[in-house]
């Protein structure tokens, strides 16, 4: 079964590569991946759908959380309060005699016509991925056809605030204390510290 992973990541070069690296190092094939910035332009929200061995799912999430650029990685596969949606654009070739039928089907699935010409239509549909599969299957029967799918985007409605680390002082002129573990003491993670507070 596919795993749906939702990540909040710093919008930094290489971040995507590090995250997908956790999966590609194991030879996993990514089914879909979407990424775009959030309300805070320095952060991106990413949704990855991937077939992960069920025993390794928790580990994969932990390894993603370990990445410096990842603020939070969560498994939303079984999160009942998570919504997942995907968008598909379809180009359907529809000769005159089939146009009404195509439009009828589109209406049933709540798809919108975004372009229309003598050859056919361009349609846009959003929904959960299985529903889209059905829609695509039906539209395909009308003849020449092409699609572009966005990949799944997911959002959990559970208020899950990422734990963020506060700033720590950089070493001054006298130099850093380099005794083993010394710096660990400086940055005790204040659990429950609010996302907004820490980012300020």
């Amino acid at each position: 079964m596919l795993q749906v992973i939702s990540l909040l990541v710093e919008n930094k070069p290489g971040a995507l590569m590090r995250i997908t690296g956790v999966l590609t190092a194991r030879g996993y094939n990514i089914e879909s991946l979407t990424v775009a910035r959030t309300l805070d332009p320095t952060l991106s929200r990413m949704t990855i759908v991937v077939d992960v061995d069920p025993n390794l799912r928790a580990l994969v999430i932990k390894q993603m959380n370990k990445l410096i650029n990842v603020l939070q990685a969560t498994d939303v596969t079984d999160d009942h309060r998570a919504v997942t949606r995907e968008m598909v654009l379809l180009r359907v070739r529809a000769p005159l005699e089939k146009r009404t039928a195509v439009l009828k089907e589109a209406e049933i699935f709540g798809a919108r016509v975004i372009d229309s010409s003598v050859e056919g239509f361009a349609l846009e549909a959003t929904g959960d991925p299985e529903k889209l599969d059905e829609f695509i299957g039906i539209m395909r029967s009308y003849g020449e056809f092409d699609i572009a799918r966005s990949g799944v985007v997911a959002l959990s409605l559970r208020p899950r605030r990422p734990r963020l680390s506060p700033p720590v002082p950089a070493p001054g002129e006298t130099g850093a204390d380099q005794t083993p573990g010394a710096r660990n003491g400086q940055e005790v993670l204040r659990s429950g510290r609010r996302f907004e507070a820490a980012r300020r």
């Binding site: 990541v9 370990k66 650029n69 990842v70 990422p162 680390s165 950089a170 660990n184 940055e187 980012r199």
Partner: peptide, 16 residues
């Protein structure tokens, strides 16, 4: 300009 602080919000270290 000497750096005064290091801020890596996503670097989670649990020490305690």
């Amino acid at each position: 300009h000497p750096v005064s602080s290091i801020h890596l919000p996503g670097y989670k270290v649990y020490t305690e």
